[in-house]
Write a protein that binds this DNA or RNA. Sequence first.
DNA 1: ATGGTTGGAGCCCAA
Length: 263
Amino acid sequence: MFKIVTWNVNSIGVRLSRLLAFLDREKPDVLCLQELKCDDAKFPAGEIEAAGYHAAVFGQKTYNGVALLSRLPPENIQRNFGGKDDDPASRFISARYSPPGSEPLTVMCAYCPNGQSLGSEKFAYKMDWFARLRRHFDANYQKSDRIVITGDFNIAPEDRDVWDPVAWKEHIHCSSGERAALAEVVGFGLYDTFRLHHKDAGLFSWWDYRELSFQQNKGLRIDLIYATRPLAGVCVRTQIDRNERKGEKPSDHAPVIAEFKLS
DNA sequence: ATGGTTGGAGCCCAA
């Protein structure tokens, strides 16, 4: 089994003890991290290595920052989309892994822009970022490739991914424009692995820190794991680790887990 | 409820 997890940790410095406990408990093959909020020099490489993990890091001071932690060594590490299309923010990293006895697969880790509010400059940047993501797929991959793209997409794909779809209608993270931009990316040939196994509404990955949102399950499902058909077809289990949102100093996001039976 | 909480920076910004 090959276990891939995505987790927006909201500062790896504050979350390091939780992160190390998570690695020890869940033993993911690849852990995709977003919002490191540290530059490469401050990344806790020693602790990660001591836990038995390789790290491919794309840090940034104060904001953003993504990383791929893995049992296997990362190959062909790519940061952002490359070329003239590139972005000053550290939001995207991918690597290839070669499991013994199986074909290689590419794992991508994305921290998609938040967008702030409809009509803002940040919203326009978000929409453009998703268009660039789709072009990145078209320029570098085929839908028959073995690809998993995970991350904080900052978009709830459907109304069943929103705690109050009426209140959130055409609001940031839920608007028809954002959903269309996400659908363009998914249209490359991606499958939402969580929805292969869970159909219910009320299953979320993010809850605001404020107003006891988690305790009332007022959340959104915005942390997603998509796979191309060859891997979606062997995705045998998915789970949102709600326990990680509990206790002392949780991230506002829970880890999302997907397991693949590779052959 | 245009509120509220968290994190990193540095006396506010982003989420």
